[in-house]
Simulated assay, not measured.
Amino acid sequence: MGEGSTTYSHAWLNRRERCAHRIRDYCPDARILYCVRHPLRQIESAWIMAMWALDNGHIQGTELHRSGKLDIRGDFNDDVRNNDGLVGTANYWQTLQCYRNEFSEDQIKIVFLEQLKANPDRTLAECCQFLGIAPDASFDDPDEARNTSASKGLATTFGRIVRSIPGYQALAAGAPSFLKTLVRPLIKDSFTEKPDWTPAVKETVISRLEEDTNRFLNYAGRPHDYWILDA
């Protein structure tokens, strides 16, 4: 049995602390895979996912939405300034401590996304060994990227009008794949470029990340220049 979610490491509403504690209560023998990436790329990806989730109604009504702590309005740099959770989630050392407080060291394995991309077969085999799964287990298309930012998109003006038509969701769900591909550019604008940082916001974020990132990399046995934060 397994379960995976990026929300288990979210800083909003003390979610990472609460998740670590609840996982321990439910399954004290759990093994935790913590997948990380360049902190700035993490913030960019989290912002895009939040934009997409809001646009598609996946956050409305949730605890986070009701709390008022989520203030995503569409301007990347303003949103980073106004949402501590975006930066906090990229403080990997703080997140790791939440899980180290609940689980032993041998129950936690750190996986670097860069490592997974560079050598998926080896990395997956190591994860299998850690989880007690046969290391020669087969995976469908391990090189294929899934759930990428490029696959997301925000509704166009036309898309919002179409989505308001009664029965649209059922009709869209039953449409053939070729038709979905054909009309998608009319319905959604894809994220084709990563968000653009202003120098001031980037400098502020790096100052909030630097010490945490260095401690995390040191713990994980990586050099401090493994991620270049001003890149």
Rank of each mutant, 00 (worst) to 15 (best):
T181R: 15
E102F: 00
D75F: 02
A173H: 09
A170L: 13
H10V: 09
L70N: 08
P176V: 13
C98Q: 01
W227D: 04
C98L: 00
R208I: 05
V201Q: 13
T198C: 05
P135T: 10
Q115F: 04
E211A: 13
F191T: 08
I108L: 06
Q115A: 09
H21P: 01
T192P: 01
Y219A: 09
D121E: 13
A30H: 04
K117C: 03
C127E: 09
S104R: 04
W52A: 05
L64G: 10
D71V: 14
G4E: 07
C128A: 11
C27M: 02
S9V: 14
A137W: 06
D75W: 02
P135Q: 03
M1D: 10
D55N: 07
A231H: 07
W93C: 06
G57H: 07
I110K: 02
A46N: 12
F103C: 02
R215E: 09
W227I: 04
L54Y: 03
T198R: 01
P166K: 00
L33P: 00
K109N: 06
G68K: 10
D143N: 12
P199C: 01
N218S: 15
N119C: 00
P176D: 14
Y34K: 07
M49E: 10
K202V: 07
A200S: 13
I187W: 05
R41Q: 13
Q42Y: 06
P120N: 00
H58C: 06
K194W: 05
P135L: 09
N101F: 05
A46I: 02
T213W: 01
S207T: 11
D136S: 14
L113Y: 13
G74W: 09
Y92L: 03
F191Q: 03
L182A: 11
D121W: 02
R24T: 01
I23L: 06
K202A: 08
T95I: 04
V162S: 08
G4M: 13
F158P: 08
I48S: 02
A172N: 12
Y26F: 12
V36G: 04
D136C: 11
R163Q: 12
S151G: 12
E203K: 14
K109F: 05
Y8K: 08
D140A: 08
L171T: 15
H224E: 12
Q60W: 09
I110W: 04
K109C: 07
E3D: 14
L154K: 02
E105C: 00
K194S: 14
D78T: 08
D225M: 02
T192Y: 02
T62F: 06
L64W: 10
A118R: 13
A231Q: 07
I43C: 06
P195Q: 05
M1V: 13
D212E: 09
D25T: 05
L116A: 08
F191E: 06
A134N: 15
W227R: 00
H21V: 12
L217R: 11
L182H: 10
A172I: 11
E114V: 00
Q94N: 07
K152E: 03
I161L: 11
